[in-house]
Simulated scan of single mutants.
Amino acid sequence: MFLSIGEVLIDMITQSNSLENATVFQKFFGGSPSNIAINIARQGIESYILSTVGKDPFGKYIKDYLNEKNVKIDYLSEREDVYTDIVFVNKSESTPEFKAYRSASLKLSIPQDLNINKFKIIHISSWAISETKQLEKILNLVELAKEKGIKIGFDPNYRKVLWKNNYTIIEVLEKLGPYIDFIKPSLDDANNIFGERSLEDYVKYFKNFGIKNILFTLGKDGVLVYNKKYEIHLSTYATKVVDVTGAGDAVWSGFYTGIINDLEILESTKLGLAFAAEKLKYLGAIAPLSDWRKIREKYR
């Protein structure tokens, strides 16, 4: 019922404040689209990942990890001509320093046997459309999906250093925007896309792309929800913060879980905030989230 398209990778995280001076790294499973797929699978929803890994030890680790978490890997390609993506990150209380070594995520392919009819939502990360040929393939897929009434979510986690597309991110949003049902930018995302502007300007820019529902995440200040019906601020539910890693993925996961279970936009957003509040209590991107109904009742 849910398909997540984008990167799966290995995070190599150091305790050091500087990548340059780091000597010891710890390996973690990573990739926002795959974190979301795992969280949704935990809710008993059939959840698929469309991505690529190398035919190497890291790729095997990723496949085994996703299998263990009950994510369907029918559309996870394993190739000998690429290596599994690795991102080196320093542990930081603010925006971390990172260095990405990309190979597999630049070789995403749409499988011939992909049956999109069974999906209610397709989620796409900006990594997935950061290469020109991949963008063209995904645009074709999105056009077909919209004809069939499938909802499209897009994560605008754009960073210039990762962009390998002949089109600018603005040109891509102009092409993709009319098909997007849900977008969840952060202030960092918007700043990287548009430069330093006001929040009001950011919202106006995203609206101008024809995007139907905008969930603007503001960290500890919650979420602003915009569509044709309303503009409303929802406060965070978080009371305890152990680790912010994966909090944005948790918001997506709760939101999509709500939409799949026929909750309306505001209720789904509140469920996303509740998922994030639960995730923030744990170290790492993946938290042992309980059934969404229990979480919803807890934060009602």
Rank of each mutant, 00 (worst) to 15 (best):
S4E: 06
E7L: 11
I10P: 04
Q15S: 15
S16D: 15
S18W: 10
V24Q: 11
F29H: 07
I38G: 01
R42L: 04
E46Q: 13
S51N: 07
Y61A: 07
D64S: 09
Y65W: 09
E68P: 07
I73T: 01
R79K: 15
V82R: 04
T84E: 08
T84Y: 05
N90V: 03
A104E: 00
A104S: 05
S105L: 09
K107D: 11
I110S: 02
L114G: 10
K120L: 12
I121C: 10
H123T: 04
E131W: 01
T132G: 04
Q134W: 03
I138T: 05
L139G: 04
A145F: 07
E147Y: 13
E147R: 13
E147V: 10
K160N: 07
W163D: 12
I170D: 13
V172D: 02
F182C: 02
P185Y: 04
L187Q: 08
L187R: 06
D188K: 06
F194G: 07
R197A: 08
R197G: 10
L199C: 11
E200P: 08
D201W: 11
Y202H: 12
K204D: 13
Y205E: 09
F206S: 01
F209Q: 06
L215S: 00
K220Q: 11
K220W: 12
D221Q: 14
G222K: 09
G222V: 11
Y226D: 14
I232G: 12
H233L: 15
L234S: 11
L234G: 08
S235N: 14
V241R: 06
D243A: 08
A250W: 02
A250F: 09
S253T: 13
S253W: 06
Y256R: 10
I260Y: 02
K270S: 07
A274S: 14
A276V: 03
A277T: 01
E278K: 01
L283S: 12
S290E: 15
R293K: 13
Y299A: 01
Y299F: 09
Y299K: 00
